[in-house]
């Protein structure tokens, strides 16, 4: 599904060069649920952005679904994101001026579905996250946990094969975090591949596979308790 080989990412500013990813190697298979942990600034978000085609990289290869994505132009990357990848963000990133219905509609319109199909998909995915009865509400009328559920509905409405989440529970209290985690597991069980960055060790432990990122490199962990650094949160 996802295969990164020696991926290197450098951020250049006037003063410094940050090697955010160094020879980053990772293989994620179809249907996996991978939790990514690591200290702040280690390159987790950078990895996720590259995996999600939000950013380009300097060298190395990245095959997404068997396709080398380094040669794609901006438009092709956008289309691929739209078709194959769903995003969940720490701060939900719902569009505040749009109702839940219109929020979930956003990626579906870029996909070019017709109105009837979009409506059906929106209702279905809001149903799945338990918010079908609040379609006309604005994001501001929901709790944080509910907002993240809407974001998950939005990410899944186009039925992507690959779901990327950057600290999806980072802004939620423990109870809400767990319910979001349960939802993600449910989704994973239906076949969607998930890669989730988190600071929360207990949540990470619920994922089938954990990887640890440090200084832009991966060290795979199978035993969560052996994590070199107590994960804060």
């Amino acid at each position: 599904m996802l295969s990164m080989n020696n991926v290197k990412k450098i951020f250049r500013t006037d003063l410094v060069e940050t090697h955010a990813l160094n020879d980053f190697n990772l293989q994620v298979d179809e249907g996996e649920f991978v939790a990514v942990t690591g200290p702040s600034g280690s390159g987790k978000t950078t990895f996720l952005n590259i995996a999600g085609l939000l950013e380009t990289f300097e060298s190395g290869t990245y095959m997404l679904d068997g396709k080398d994505v380094s040669k794609l132009n901006d438009n092709q990357r956008s289309v691929l994101r739209n078709q194959k990848i769903g995003f969940i963000f720490q701060s939900f990133n719902l569009i505040p001026d749009l109702s839940l219905f219109d929020n979930v509609d956003v990626p579906l319109r870029y996909r070019g579905f017709n109105a009837a199909e979009r409506k059906q998909r929106i209702e279905q995915s809001l149903e799945m996250v338990g918010l079908a009865n609040r379609m006309k509400h604005l994001p501001s009328q929901l709790s944080g946990g509910q907002q993240q559920r809407v974001a998950i509905a939005r990410a899944l409405a186009g039925e992507p094969r690959f779901l990327l989440a950057d600290e999806p529970t980072g802004n939620l209290d423990t109870k809400m975090a767990h319910s979001v985690m349960e939802l993600l597991q449910e989704i994973n069980q239906k076949g969607t591949t998930i890669v989730m960055v988190t600071h929360d060790a207990t949540l990470a432990a619920q994922a089938a596979r954990n990887i640890y990122v440090r200084d832009g490199r991966v060290s795979e962990l199978h035993d969560v308790s052996a994590m070199p650094e107590a994960v804060n949160s």
């Binding site: 438009n75 569009i95 186009g158």
Partner: peptide, 16 residues
């Protein structure tokens, strides 16, 4: 800005 970035992440092309 954030909303635009989000739209791009969700698959909006620059043209969109």
């Amino acid at each position: 800005k954030k909303q635009i970035g989000t739209r791009r992440a969700l698959g909006a092309t620059q043209g969109a």
